[in-house]
Nucleic acid binder design. Structure first.
Length: 355
DNA sequence: AGTTCCCGCCAGACA
DNA sequence: TGTCTGGCGGGAACT
């Protein structure tokens, strides 16, 4: 009874004064970076951080776990974390990308990403740490340019290695993805606040979708003013960004860093960033198999080019996109196709190949 | 009306 | 036994 009345009081208080944006991960992230993104190795004590940030402890824990899972924070001891800084991100992304999809990982603090033997129980698989890494890997290891939360939840439901489990997973995902979706929103909002991904509202679907920005989203924040004019000119002249603009339904929610790497596949962005260390060069960019139809493809000009594709079966047998050379990407694509076929056969009740 | 996501319960782990 | 940790779902804010 006492608890009920206490809750009622709290409820009324919230109803009168509560404003979501004042408690959002977005604001928390900004405040956190203002406080701690100064020196690499700075020790963060959680109780102190809660007080300084004015945030609930439970809320801060979720935030910390997300940062920890991509290596920005490292747990030193109970309630103590050290800030590693954004310099760790290239290595983190490389490790996640190298790991491929459908695997579970121990903490990145163990340095080399090591695989956990056997299948994790469901509770473990839904932990924010793994979901964060899987979410990032979905961008890094696929050619998908825009990903919505519910797509991510279904795609990342369990491992994609065993095709015989697809039926079970689709059935299971109806229940499981609902739980995952809420976690993915938290994760996506933190990554978006860090300019690692870009959040865009699509009025036509009434949903948010997310686009990979990656390392440059951070690196270029510092020099965004210098790049602004050049970037604007490059983006406007670049035919690939017709596709980008098409998805920019609400500019108010777009992250401030409009970088020249937009439109590049995350996979190639990471490869180029790590191996060359060179600046962005849109002319060198090569699109993957999901490039907009208005953009010249980086592959032999087939007879289907620029025409409506009618026969997906024969297309799949005759076209071999670049990701077929990569096992993890093949697995992801197989999973995607399986999920799509199952959706149509079980939910829509028709053949996906038919219009 | 559907989507987004903050909040806090509560069970398990740990000291 | 107290504290920490983190999965989970309710439900209010938001679109």
């Amino acid at each position: 009874m006492a608890q009920l009345s206490a809750n009622s009081t709290q409820f009324n208080f919230r109803k009168l004064t509560y404003c979501r944006k004042e408690k959002s991960f977005d604001l928390l992230c900004s405040n956190f970076l203002n406080l701690y993104d100064q020196d690499r190795g700075e020790m963060i004590e959680t109780h102190d951080a809660c007080a300084r940030l004015g945030v609930d402890k439970r809320r801060l824990r979720d935030f910390i776990v997300i940062l920890e899972s991509i290596g920005l924070l490292k747990k030193e001891r109970k309630n103590h974390y050290s800030w590693k800084g954004f310099g760790v991100l290239p290595k983190t992304f490389q490790l996640l990308q190298r790991g491929g999809l459908g695997e579970s990982y121990t903490r990145l603090e163990d340095d080399e990403v090591s695989q956990v033997g056997g299948k994790l129980d469901n509770r473990k698989e839904n932990c924010i740490e793994l979901l964060t890494q899987k979410f990032v890997k979905l961008f890094l290891c696929s050619e998908l340019e825009l990903i919505s939360i519910d797509e991510a939840a279904i795609l990342l439901n369990g491992d994609a290695q065993d095709p015989s489990l697809i039926q079970t997973k689709m059935f299971f995902s109806i229940y499981d993805s609902a739980a995952k979706v809420k976690r993915f929103y938290d994760i996506a909002n933190v990554l978006s606040s860090m300019n690692i991904i870009q959040k865009t509202y699509q009025p036509e679907t009434k949903r948010f979708v997310f686009r990979w920005i990656g390392i440059r989203g951070q690196a270029e924040m510092a020099t965004i003013n210098d790049l602004a004019l050049k970037t604007k000119r490059t983006i406007e002249n670049e035919p690939t960004n017709n596709g980008v603009k098409r998805h920019m339904g609400d500019h108010s929610v777009v992250a401030p860093s409009q970088t020249p790497c937009e439109g590049r596949s995350p996979k190639k962005v990471v490869e180029n960033d790590l191996e060359k260390g060179s600046g962005p060069d849109m002319k060198k960019h090569r699109f993957g198999p999901f490039a907009p139809t208005t953009v010249p493809q980086d592959k032999p000009q087939g007879k289907n080019n620029g025409t409506q594709i009618q026969d997906w079966e024969s297309l799949a047998s005759t076209q071999r996109p670049q990701y077929h050379q990569h096992q993890a990407l093949r697995d992801l694509f197989s999973h995607y196709v399986g999920a799509w076929n199952n959706y149509h056969s079980e939910v829509a009740g028709k053949d996906p190949a038919q219009p």
